[in-house]
Design a protein around this nucleic acid. Structure first.
Lengths: 210, 210
DNA sequence: GTCTATATGGGGATAGAC
DNA sequence: GTCTATCCCCATATAGAC
């Protein structure tokens, strides 16, 4: 969000205003790394190079920070996924479109955005009021997937006996779960995305014919 | 774990010792419902009908309770899955064995055990020391799946180009993610298990021939 | 915009009576 | 085996100086 990474120097570094975006950047990284509970305003302030009380100049409460991060996280992955799908004409092969969407979601989560990964990591841990505030943004992303899946099913590319809502929950849930165990040293995001597409599109059983 | 459900009466109910197992039962339910952070010893004690200080007669710390619940949760789902697989001879159709294993895992998570669901819900939220204590039990369950998948792949039932460890992480991660959204009013666990098996075994694309 | 100082509340944990 | 009472720490949040 801010134009440069914050200095993580513990103290006595160059004193330069971090501002609202700087605080959000640092907080998103900490939430992604540590989850919701362990990240206190004191830790955020220290990582940003300011004092805890100063945060209240920019935000009214801790929850306000969290909501801002959750919203930005969804918007980031939504945008990536939308662009990936737009890159294909409507009459493209269904498998290619789905592969692109899966790849975009995983890249946003594992490669690109601390905000998106923080969202997945902490959404289940934040107070109900915070979840509620994030809901409209989430719904918009879910609708994007539902539109895509509905269109592909109508075109005959997807099995007709699966409920679209359930399929979307399965797919997004499976992709988000990678955050718990993905290790770039064991393989690239690209390879992971390819495997997910293989399994979700064609299954894990040996195909009898092609 | 205890032989009967605890009375949830807020006060002045029949005073009967709840004991170690009673505390664990109540705590597991609260952790499943609320996650790790919001569940305090005071809340556990109140739900169990005792006072917070009394918990320390049975446990040395809050973490000791959490570790006991995490371990019991894995053991419960492990046992269910193992029994489900044992119900099939080694030369059964691979798809049938996998379906049974998937069904057993989902049932343990969504139907049977507060301990298993609490495990999935809070594992990512607990301190590292608690996770470490739970690791051996987890590894044993993971090995059970790896053994099954390796055997099926050796028999030619699974595609050869997928890494077993990665496949297991994909599968378990996807199944565990259902805890976030599964609603029994929208469909049974059995139906959900069937859909998961369909998609993971054969994929979501319309099959060209059978 | 950031600081220092502090109010206020709730958490885990302990000691000793019953 | 459970109670009451309490210690100690750390969280969010506020007030006012600079």
């Amino acid at each position: 969000m801010a134009e440069c990474a914050s200095t993580t120097a513990s103290a006595a570094s160059v004193r330069r205003p971090v501002g609202r975006d700087g605080i959000l950047d640092v907080a998103a990284r900490l939430f992604r790394e540590q989850g919701y509970g362990p990240v206190t305003l004191r830790k955020i302030a220290e990582a940003a190079g300011i004092k805890a009380g100063s945060i209240y100049y920019h935000f009214g409460s801790k929850d306000e920070i969290v909501v801002a991060i959750l919203d930005a996280g969804i918007r980031a992955v939504h945008e990536k996924m939308r662009q990936a799908v737009l890159g294909h004409p409507d009459d493209s092969v269904a498998a290619a479109i789905l592969r692109a969407a899966i790849r975009a979601h995983l890249r946003a989560l594992l490669d690109v955005s601390d905000y998106s990964s923080a969202n997945v990591r902490i959404f289940g841990q934040v107070p109900q009021s915070v979840r509620d505030a994030n809901l409209p943004t989430r719904r918009a992303y879910e609708a994007e997937w539902d539109n895509l899946l509905t269109r592909l099913q109508r075109d005959g590319a997807l099995r007709r006996n699966v409920d679209i809502r359930r399929l979307r929950l399965m797919l997004i849930g499976a992709l988000n779960a990678t955050l718990e165990w993905f290790d770039p040293e064991r393989g690239s995001v690209e390879a992971l995305a390819s495997t997910y597409a293989d399994v979700f599109l064609n299954g894990m059983l040996e195909q009898r014919e092609v």
